[in-house]
Structure formats: structure tokens, C-alpha cells
Design a protein around this nucleic acid. Sequence first.
DNA 1: ATCGCACACGTTATAGCATAACGCAATTGA
DNA 2: TCAATTGCGTTATGCTATAACGTGTGCGAT
Lengths: 131, 131
Amino acid sequence: MGTPQLTKNQSLVMGALAHSDGPMSAYTILDKLRDHGFRAPLQVYRALDKLLEYGLVHRLESLNAFVACTCPHEHEHDHGVTAFTICEGCGQVTEFHDEGIEQRLSALVRAQSFKTEKTTIEIRGHCKSCA
Amino acid sequence: MGTPQLTKNQSLVMGALAHSDGPMSAYTILDKLRDHGFRAPLQVYRALDKLLEYGLVHRLESLNAFVACTCPHEHEHDHGVTAFTICEGCGQVTEFHDEGIEQRLSALVRAQSFKTEKTTIEIRGHCKSCA
DNA sequence: ATCGCACACGTTATAGCATAACGCAATTGA
DNA sequence: TCAATTGCGTTATGCTATAACGTGTGCGAT
């Protein structure tokens, strides 16, 4: 259950995200890849679906945008919950993980007999430079 | 800086959300309020903007939808971070608050000299009944 | 009083995000 | 060989959100 070889489209989308210094919307990605033959949103969304499944990309719900995963791990099995700070000034996104939060959330959720499938934590604000 | 008297449109939108048993999209609200004279999305979005500002309503980023705040409210000033569990089965949304998470997030964010403006925590999964 | 301002409102149009539904091609495994 | 799966390309459509215009109303300052 490692990450399979990426297809051409998946690689192109992954590349676009990896070389961007911030999150991109699906349509922005589409525009960046028109020279490589992309013509329709679905080409992007289908690739993104797989990349999300493989854990190579994260979706930022509060932006309707996507970022490459910055984890050094390079592979598989959830590093548990992923959280993000998102700067409204410069658009910079920082990914981080914390056991403490994870455990605390886990306990709270268990208390209501809720079964977690996906956790979204996004903090909007201003980074050090943009404060 | 308490909550001012709501306007007619704001009251209608608030009522629609309060009497719903789950989150609603802006367009669903629009449809529910057509009989009351609503004709365009902006009427809903403008009311929602104010209700969000007053803290009477929350936006669920992962659903692009809105719910009435379930806090025993009656007043102002942030109860800090709001988190939600969202059941994929029945659509039920539960709002909760936790000092521990808040402090932990606050510390992590401070460590990167980030200034928080809004925090989103949404947990998708299945509730007890839908497990 | 009336002017200026802030604010809610109404309408039309448009922008931005996401998926449905069709068909084709290549791969795999029974 | 056949059926099942997966990725791909295209067209069309649907859902979410805002821009830009103008109207009306209340209210404080001059």
C-alpha cells in the first residue's frame, strides 16, 4: 500500500504543486498545465483525487485550494492529524503535526462515540513577516 | 458591541438555520426563503455575513454550509475556538469547545510567531448511530 | 432643515469551484 | 477471450460566491 507510480497527469499536477510556493486552486493548476496538454478541470481534479489518496497533497478547505505535503516522511501511513497556518497576507501555508492535539481531539471525539475519518485544522491569520 | 437587533432578512436566515436540524448551504436557505420574498443569493450571503460576525452562525468550511450556533449564547466574546464533528451518514453536526486544544494550538502557533485570526476545526466521520 | 454618511436592500451579471455522463484505450487476471 | 478495472479526454452542467450598479432609509453634524 505504498505510493504507486504516478501517471503522467498525476506527475504534472504534483510537479505544479511542488514547485509552487503556496496553495493553488484546481483552476490555477489547470492554467499552469495548459501548455502540457491540459484542457479541462476534470483532468486536474482526477489527478488531485489520487494525490490526496496517496497523501502527497493536502486540500485546504477554507481556501478551496491544494498544497503539496511538506512532510519529510515521503511515505505512507497517516502521520495522524495535519494542521495548517495560513497567512492572509503573503499566502504562505505551514503544515504541522502535534501529538497533543491529536490525543485531545481523539478523547473528545471518543466521548461522543464518534468515529473520525478525517480531521481538518486550519488557522487563518498573519505570519511573522506580515504581522 | 452586543448583538444588535436583527434586520428582517437576517432574522429570516437565522430562523431557517435555527429550525433546521443540520447545516444548510446558502442556496438551500435561499430556496427555503423564496416564499418570504428572497430572490437572489446575495440576500442570503449578506445576512449570513452579519450573522457570522455576531457569532450567531458558524460556517462549515468542509461543507460550504452554515449552522446556527448551539452555544447557550446570549452573549458576545469568543468562547475561543469552536470545533465540530460532522457525521457523513446523517449529516448531524455537533459543536464543541475545549480549553486544552485551544491552549495547545495557541502555543504551537505562537512558536512560529503567527497571529491567529480564525481557527477552523472540523472532524468528518460517523456518529454513534451511523457507525 | 438638509446635507452627508452609513447601512441594508434589490437586481443583474459574472466569476470561481466541482462533478455528471458519455465514450475510448490500455492493462490485468480469470 | 472475456470481463473488470483504471486512466484518459470531452462536453455540459451544477453549485458556491462575489462584483457592480442603483435605491431607500435613518441619523448625526453643520
